Simulated assay, not measured.
Amino acid sequence: MKLAVSTLALPRERPAEWLPKIADMGFAGVEVSPSWTWGTNGAEPDNSTVSVFRQKARQAGLAIVGLHSLLHGQTGMGLLQGAEARHKAVEFVVRMSQVCRDLGGRTLILGGERFRRTVGEHSAWAELASFFDAVLPRIENHGTLLCLDPLGPASADFCRRAAECRMLINYLDHPSLGYQLNSAVIVANGDTGHSTFAALRGQLDIFHVAEPGLQAIASSKQIDHADFRRHLAAISFAEWLCLHQQAGAAPGDELENGLRLLRHYYLRRDNLNLDRLRQQTAAATQLAPQSITG
């Protein structure tokens, strides 16, 4: 697994200046939150901002993983909020895909409180499908992946569980769709069983290591990171593992401690009992219905 960190863990003042520092600490990549990093509100950052960020990352030897929390902090746009809000969300996500491409990134994570249903369930599924049908053909040539990410009950009341998101991805069946998991969300949704991971073997594009409220890793005592390591190892996950925590008063110390704990929990080579977990993976039932409208 490759270790990255979200820009949420960097100070908002000149975050690009921190890229050499996080590379020196030992991170291999950085994932960008547009609203935190650039203060975007319905508009993409200008070309010079993107160019400087890309150049700083390249000089530091950091890979730019992608963009996350695209809909967080964006006003007047969203899903299940009417045609105008959906249209603005479509245009914004397409522009963010272009920014991601220009940065050299690959994954796009929607995020935000996107699924607050105000219509019937059938209509809600249809509207979600319409959103993705509008976005995906326009980003296919960018080489990016729009990753549907499960959300906790505080952030969504529809299409938030891992199985629901997987069902929608399987139904749409598009090469520009990807999948992300987040440790804090998995716990909040009660999806900690191995079947959540087994169903995504070979399909999981990025894993966010996070605590409730973006606290420092392991601080809440609610998340068994060692158990998540075993599940990820059992499905041979080798993609980006990204640390998500909020920048505090001492970001340098917080970053170094976060990286130390990432390595401790997720890169240890102790007895993982992988044979048993791989047997569970092989035996797990694939909960991926072929239709969301039947």
Rank of each mutant, 00 (worst) to 15 (best):
Q98K: 13
W18Q: 07
Q203F: 03
A60T: 04
P15K: 06
I109D: 07
A218D: 13
L214H: 03
Q279R: 13
W36K: 13
R117Q: 10
V50S: 09
M96W: 06
L177W: 05
D191S: 05
A23I: 06
K221Y: 02
A85Y: 00
L148G: 15
H264K: 13
F197M: 00
E121K: 15
G120W: 01
R114F: 04
W125A: 00
L168I: 04
R276C: 14
R263V: 15
F207Q: 06
L62E: 02
E127K: 12
N182L: 03
D270V: 14
E239F: 03
D102H: 09
V94W: 08
L71W: 06
P153V: 01
M167S: 13
P251S: 06
L8V: 06
G29E: 13
A57Q: 03
G193W: 01
V5Y: 00
E84M: 01
W36G: 11
S219Q: 09
E254S: 10
V99C: 07
S130N: 13
L255R: 02
L261T: 05
G178M: 01
L200C: 05
Q280F: 00
P212F: 03
R166Q: 09
G258S: 05
R116M: 10
G39K: 11
D227Q: 03
H72G: 07
R116Q: 07
N41V: 12
V99F: 03
L261Y: 00
Q215H: 08
A60F: 08
V52K: 07
E113H: 11
A23S: 06
A154S: 08
I292G: 12
R95K: 15
A226L: 11
A60N: 04
L261E: 00
G252F: 07
H225Y: 13
C159E: 08
